[in-house]
Simulated scan of single mutants.
Amino acid sequence: MSEEMDSATGAFVAHRNLLFTVAYEMLGSAADAEDVLQETWLRWVDVDQAEIRDPRAYLVRITTRQALTRLRTLGRRKETYVGPWLPEPLLTTPDIAEDVELADSVSMAMMLVLETLAPVERAVFVLREVFDLAYDEIAAAVDKTPAAVRQIAHRARAHVAARRPRGVVSSAESRHALEAFGRAVETGDLQGLLDLLAPDIVLLADGGGVVKAVVRPIVGADRVARLMAAGLPRVGGQVSTELVQINGAPALVIRIDGVLDSVVATRIDDGSITGLYVVRNPEKLSRIEQATPVAR
C-alpha cells in the first residue's frame, strides 16, 4: 500500500504544474484551480495505480472533469459579480516567454477570449491547442465521442481566431509600450497616453465590489487617457509603477504610497494598446508577490 501511495504521489507531483495550468486556463482563477487540484488528488489516490498506463493522461482527465464542474459554478458566480470580471493575474517566471504558445495561451488577452467559449468548448480548445492531447484522450475527459470533439475543436478554433489579438507582439515591443505607459501614468502625461492608445481602446477594471473601480467598460482613447492620467487607482497619493511579467507577458504593477494597488495588463494590436485590463480586487492579487509555475 505504501509503495502504491508513493507511486501516486510521485506522479501527481511530477505533473502538478501541468494540472494547475490546465485548471487555470479553464477557470481563469488560481484559487479555484488550486481547489480543483485538491479534488483531483483525492480522486487520484483512490485509483488502482497498477491499472494506470498513462498517469499524465489520467490526471488531466480527472482535472478537466473537476474544472468543468467548477466552471459551471463559477459561471453562476460571475452573473452576480460587481463590474467586469477579469482573470486572476499570475506573476510568472521569465522562462515562460521561451514557450511562445504557452505564454500566449495564459496571456490576459487570450484568457478573456477563452471566457467567450462555452465550458466544453473551452476545455476542448485548451486540451487540444495548448496541451496537444489526442482527440480520443480529450473525448474521455469531456465525455464526448472523438468525432464530436473534432467538431467542437474546429468550432472553438474559429471562434478564438476571430477574437484573438492581431499579429505577434514581441516581449520587447510590449515592454517598450508599457514602460512609456507607466511613465505617463506616474506623471499624468495625457498626451503621452494618447500617443500609445488605439482610438477604439477598451478599458476593463475589476474591483469585485471590494474596492473602487469603474463598473462598466470605458471605450475610446480620450476617455481612457483622461482616466489614467487622473490616477485610475485613487486620487491622491504617490503613484509608482513596476514592470513585471504577468501571465507570460510584460505588465505593470501599480502601487500607491508603496502599497500594492492594482495590476495592469494590456492587449496590443498593430503596435497600439487596444485593451487595458486593470485588476484591483485584492482577492485576486495574492499571486503577484511570488511567481507561479505554469507548464505543459
Rank of each mutant, 00 (worst) to 15 (best):
D32P: 01
Q290G: 02
A230H: 11
Y24E: 00
T145M: 10
M108D: 01
V215T: 11
A249V: 01
A31K: 09
G258Q: 07
A103E: 07
L194I: 01
T63F: 12
A139K: 10
H154N: 01
R155S: 10
Y135L: 14
A213C: 06
G248M: 06
T80F: 14
L19C: 03
T241F: 12
G192N: 05
Q66N: 05
R72W: 08
P146M: 09
N281R: 08
L260K: 06
A251F: 02
T73F: 08
V149C: 09
G271H: 09
M110H: 13
G220S: 09
R296M: 02
P165K: 07
I201V: 15
A230Q: 12
V45Q: 13
E39N: 06
T63L: 07
K212M: 04
V215Q: 12
R255I: 02
I138M: 11
V47K: 14
V215C: 00
A139V: 08
G207P: 04
L276F: 11
Q49N: 01
V202L: 07
S29R: 06
T80I: 12
S170Y: 13
A123L: 09
A161N: 14
D132N: 11
E25T: 08
A8D: 03
L114K: 02
T21E: 10
P282K: 04
V106E: 05
R234S: 09
E51P: 00
D206Y: 00
D270P: 00
R216H: 13
N247I: 00
R122E: 04
Q66I: 02
I256Q: 06
I138R: 11
I52F: 10
R122W: 10
L127F: 13
E115P: 02
E173D: 12
E179S: 14
S2R: 14
R150G: 01
D35R: 11
V185P: 06
V106L: 08
R53V: 05
W85M: 03
V149F: 15
I62E: 09
A8Y: 12
G220P: 06
R122L: 07
H154E: 05
L193T: 02
V253E: 12
I273K: 04
V160Q: 07
T64A: 14
V202Q: 06
T73K: 09
V113D: 05
L37G: 05
N247D: 13
H176V: 05
D95N: 10
V210H: 10
D46H: 13
V239W: 07
R255G: 01
A97Y: 05
L86R: 05
I268H: 03
V239L: 13
D99L: 08
R157K: 14
S272R: 15
A265F: 09
V100A: 13
N281L: 04
V244E: 13
L243Y: 04
S170R: 11
G248A: 01
R223S: 10
V169K: 04
M228C: 08
R128M: 08
D195S: 13
G220V: 05
G167M: 10
L276V: 11
T92Y: 15
R175C: 06
D206C: 03
Y135C: 01
E79Y: 02
